[in-house]
């Protein structure tokens, strides 16, 4: 019934983590729901509740070296705590039925379960108590504070209760964003490449290799630059809305790209294209952050998306005009 797990990670776990970050085979990366033992837990040992997303689970057990605890893994369909709580799969019903399914009341003598604080959007603590008899204790936000939390008699400091959004946290989500949007951006790059051959008199295929190649690199550069630099520099970029924060990054990228590639007349056509792409990618980064509200994002999208579309169309028109102008 109970599976024993190690507090050490093996290289297989680390390799798997890299794959998940890159969005490869993500659904298959789930842990079997149920009760797990770390060390030699007894009936008085604490019970920690986790999602069955392998990354969350591994992260948690890695922090438990030297402790004797139970881990109750819920079936969150392989999704991490925060997202599963938002969806309701890390929820009151699942917790109550999992407590019953493993017979937790016969395994431990106390009546407490420790949940990650970030699962709170999905769990109604008073309902869990009513339906299962177990009291929900919200632990710290980060697994690395678990030991300190348990040693302090299940008291969290205010610092443990706050989400942070550090440099590493911000960069960790970049690959997923890139993989998500790359196909769309690739198509946009191809469209711009196709437009490059239009001249005043005919369609010049040889321009595809010169202008077309340049514009493709610009689209790609704006995409990668926007996806990486905006998250990396987020706290220091001026503005509150992400689409505004991206403006500085867009301008700098434009400066770099036009000085690297020899563009002549096309310089001005590229500015709106770059601004549009960086702004769009920045706006999409809202979902990865830990402080943007849905009402805020909706408001931002209402004005940002029309502007982004307008910028892109303007850039495409200017690009064609520059092509015609260059050929005359």
């Amino acid at each position: 019934m109970v599976t024993r797990v190690n507090a050490q990670l093996e290289w297989r776990d680390v390799l798997g983590a890299v794959k998940v970050r890159l969005n490869i085979g993500r659904m298959a990366y789930a842990v079997e729901p149920g009760l797990y033992a770390v060390g030699n837990p007894e009936e008085t040992s604490p019970v920690l509740v986790s999602a069955n997303y392998k990354l969350s689970f591994d992260y948690l057990r890695r922090e438990l070296g030297g402790l004797d605890v139970w881990i109750l893994v819920l079936d969150t369909k392989g999704v991490n705590v925060w997202c599963a709580a938002g969806k309701g799969t890390f929820g009151t019903d699942e917790l109550v039925s999992r407590i019953k399914a493993v017979g937790l009341e016969k395994i431990v003598s106390h009546r407490k379960v420790i949940l990650p604080q970030l699962s709170a959007p999905g769990i109604a603590a008073h309902e869990v108590k009513k339906q299962s008899g177990f009291q929900v204790v919200y632990g710290p936000v980060r697994a690395c504070d678990i030991k300190a939390f348990i040693h302090a008699g299940m008291e969290a400091t205010p610092e443990m209760r706050m989400v942070r959004f550090d440099f590493a946290d911000r960069l960790a989500v970049v690959p997923v964003e890139i993989v998500e949007w790359a196909p769309h951006v690739f198509l946009l790059g191809l469209a711009m490449l196709g437009l490059s051959g239009i001249t005043g008199v005919s369609y010049d295929l040889s321009l595809i290799w010169t202008r077309g190649f340049n514009v493709f690199m610009i689209v790609l550069g704006a995409f990668l630059g926007g996806s990486i630099l905006v998250p990396a520099l987020l706290p220091w970029l001026p503005g509150k809305a992400f689409s505004i924060k991206s403006l500085c990054v867009g301008l700098v990228l434009w400066g770099i790209l036009v000085s690297v590639l020899n563009l002549a007349l096309d310089v001005w056509a590229m500015l709106p294209v770059i601004l549009s792409i960086t702004s769009f990618m920045a706006m999409n980064f809202t979902g990865c952050t830990t402080f943007t509200s849905q009402s805020g994002v909706k408001r931002e999208m209402r004005y940002a998306i029309p502007v982004q579309i307008l910028l892109l169309i303007t850039g495409m028109i200017l690009w064609v005009i520059a092509g015609i102008g260059g050929s005359l």
Partner: peptide
């Protein structure tokens, strides 16, 4: 608060955010 999710939702895909392919990995 996730623009990708809201966009996917608008086009009928996956509802608002936190699909397996969206970004949130907190």
């Amino acid at each position: 608060g996730c623009a990708t999710g809201l966009i996917n939702g608008m086009f009928g895909g996956g509802g608002a955010c936190c699909g397996e392919k969206t970004c949130c990995s907190k």
